[in-house]
Amino acid sequence: MKQVIVSPRRCVGCMQCVVACAVAHSRSGDLPGALAESPRPNPRIHVGAGIYHEGFPNRCRHCNPAPCMAACLPGAIYRESKTDSVLVNPDVCINCASCAMACPYGVIRYRPDPLIRSGNTVAIKCDNCVARQHKGLDTACTEACKTGALVFGELDAAMKRETERVARSMTPGPEAWALHPETEPLLAHKRAIVNMNHQEEGRSSS
């Protein structure tokens, strides 16, 4: 089964997945239309910033067993077997936030959503783009990602690709950055700045 494979180290923080996700979860399905909708469509993927301001695509891992599912009071969270996705039934969700307390990744939000016909505020989380998958489409975030941080594919194939990359990455440069992005000059530079700003001050402080 294909799934979203996340390689956080390749995230450059461009947030295109965030936009693509929100559009994919809009009624209109296109960006101008999505922006006109009320309530505004919600992204289900959240790009956070690490300690050196590097990006990190944070989305539901569709854990198995899923702690959110165990914690859900009304039994609104269930697993869809075809795509192995943990989903929320918005008609059952009572917006109690018990799942927020259970999710170790902090990827569940509570919002009104254009796809929720009741207008209720409910738990909003990544649904693995099941609607798109059922139409034979890839997930929206992976379609948007241009750096391979989010890839829709077979896990085995991804592992194989990673192994090959290790073999190729012995020389410095982009091949190596793919495996060890921290050797990439910009990230090294950002780390230097953050570390410098946090240094104990010497005589320069007034």
Binding site: G48, A49, I51, F56, G106, V107, E182, V194, H198, Q199
Partner: peptide, 25 residues
């Protein structure tokens, strides 16, 4: 301050794990 930040997100935790031990003071 990271721990108590309203912007706490998993990225911070991952980042610390990724750069383990090399973090700022």
């Amino acid at each position: 301050s990271e721990l108590a930040s309203v912007d706490l997100n998993f990225a911070t935790i991952y980042s610390h794990a990724r750069y383990g031990g090399t973090t700022h003071t």
